[in-house]
Amino acid sequence: MATTRTAFEDLPASVHTAIEERTGPLLKIESVTAGFNSEISARIFSEAGTCFVKGLRTDHPRAWTQRREAEVNPYLRGRGIAPALLWSLEAAGWHLLAFEALDGHHADYSPGSPDLPKVAATLRHTR
């Protein structure tokens, strides 16, 4: 099932307000086009700093996957596997997750890619 993207600006005003209650006034929004699982995806710059926000409508068939991502995050953060979850919110029919913003790129899995040893090391990572 394809997920249709919604522009951050098209979220209900009450969702923007709920975000600003956590971040302070928003200074800049950069839409993120990579990825296929979120209806909303953006880097948010605010007085509190920068974070990555992704989300789905609460009635989306895959909404449960986002809740699961929030549940497992405490076990992954600080291990070099996933960025820390900063906050989660539900407002006006949307469920949003905010993560620490990291600079990087999607892994390149092509033969000879310098990303392959890093991916392999992550897969071998144990407690």
Rank of each mutant, 00 (worst) to 15 (best):
R5L: 12
R5F: 14
T6M: 09
T6G: 03
T6A: 11
A7V: 09
A7L: 15
A7M: 13
D10V: 02
L11H: 06
A13L: 14
A13V: 14
A13M: 10
A13S: 15
S14P: 03
S14D: 15
V15T: 08
V15I: 06
A18T: 01
I19W: 05
E20K: 06
T23A: 08
T23M: 13
T23G: 03
G24T: 05
G24D: 05
G24H: 10
G24V: 05
P25A: 11
P25M: 03
P25Q: 09
L26N: 02
L27Q: 15
L27M: 12
K28D: 12
K28T: 04
I29A: 09
I29M: 09
E30I: 01
S31G: 13
V32T: 07
V32G: 05
T33H: 15
T33Q: 12
T33E: 15
F36Y: 11
S38A: 15
I40M: 15
S41Y: 14
A42V: 14
R43C: 01
R43I: 12
R43V: 09
I44H: 09
F45W: 10
F45Q: 08
F45I: 08
S46C: 10
E47Q: 15
E47Y: 07
A48T: 04
A48E: 05
T50H: 04
T50C: 13
C51W: 08
C51T: 05
C51S: 13
F52V: 00
F52E: 00
K54V: 10
K54A: 01
G55N: 13
G55E: 13
L56G: 04
L56M: 07
L56A: 03
T58N: 07
T58C: 12
D59N: 15
D59F: 10
H60M: 08
P61G: 01
P61D: 03
R62V: 05
A63S: 13
A63N: 06
A63R: 07
W64R: 05
T65Q: 14
T65H: 08
Q66C: 01
Q66H: 12
Q66A: 09
R67I: 01
R67A: 11
R68C: 01
R68S: 02
A70L: 07
A70W: 05
A70G: 06
A70S: 13
A70I: 07
E71I: 00
E71L: 02
V72Q: 03
V72R: 06
N73R: 00
N73W: 01
N73L: 00
P74K: 11
Y75L: 14
L76S: 04
L76N: 05
L76Q: 02
R77D: 01
G78F: 09
G78Y: 11
R79D: 03
R79N: 02
G80W: 11
G80H: 12
